[in-house]
Nucleic acid binder design. Sequence first.
DNA 1: CACCAGGCAAGTA
DNA 2: TACTTGCATGGT
Length: 217
Amino acid sequence: MISYTKRVLSLYKTLFDAFGPQRWWPGDTPFEVMVGAVLTQNTNWTNVSRAIDTLKNEGLLSFEAISALPLDTLAEKIRPSGYYNLKAKRLTNLLGLIHRKYDGDLSLFFQTDQDTLRQDLLSVKGIGPETADSIILYAAKHPVFVVDAYTHRILSRHGIIGEESDYHEIQDLFMDSLPADTALFNEYHALLVRLGKEFCKKTNPRCSSCPLKEPEE
DNA sequence: CACCAGGCAAGTA
DNA sequence: TACTTGCATGGT
């Protein structure tokens, strides 16, 4: 039986050799990345991209501009990203935290130590573990491993974890097996999403041509 | 037409 | 605690 650590390292090598560097996350600023992290919840990135473009084109992609926007106007602007009423509220919840606790200072917010930042993000209604960790890794650039539906599906389908494994368990598997390196965690998560989009879909997986070959069971 | 996409919280028993 | 459901657009 090969150790988990070796399987995690070997999986990374396989993915990197197959796909090369992914250059994530799409976003010009940490603020843009943070907004994208909320908008992409259970949603295709191309839809999110449209919403971000609208905000950008109308000069609304800033802490001040979004904070000043009425909720229903904000919802209207982000409509293509789906769940727009919900996500508008979630964005304002998040900006509310940054306003209250960090006096609206984004740099201070992103520089906050990883554990405090994660606790603060999880205290916001509408920010769960994946969105929090995406913001911490891709916006604040602290080394936390992001787990998503693709990560769970790929690892369970290939027999590395059980189907019932939860977020924290999967996150620990990666973080106990790898050095705490922001660039590495960035690349690894991006590679898993690349594999998921291309080969390991929810239904009809193209496992025969997958770089990981056949699932073990 | 059915199903999916880089989740999360609230409701039910 | 362990399921289930609502939220919603745009692509395949």
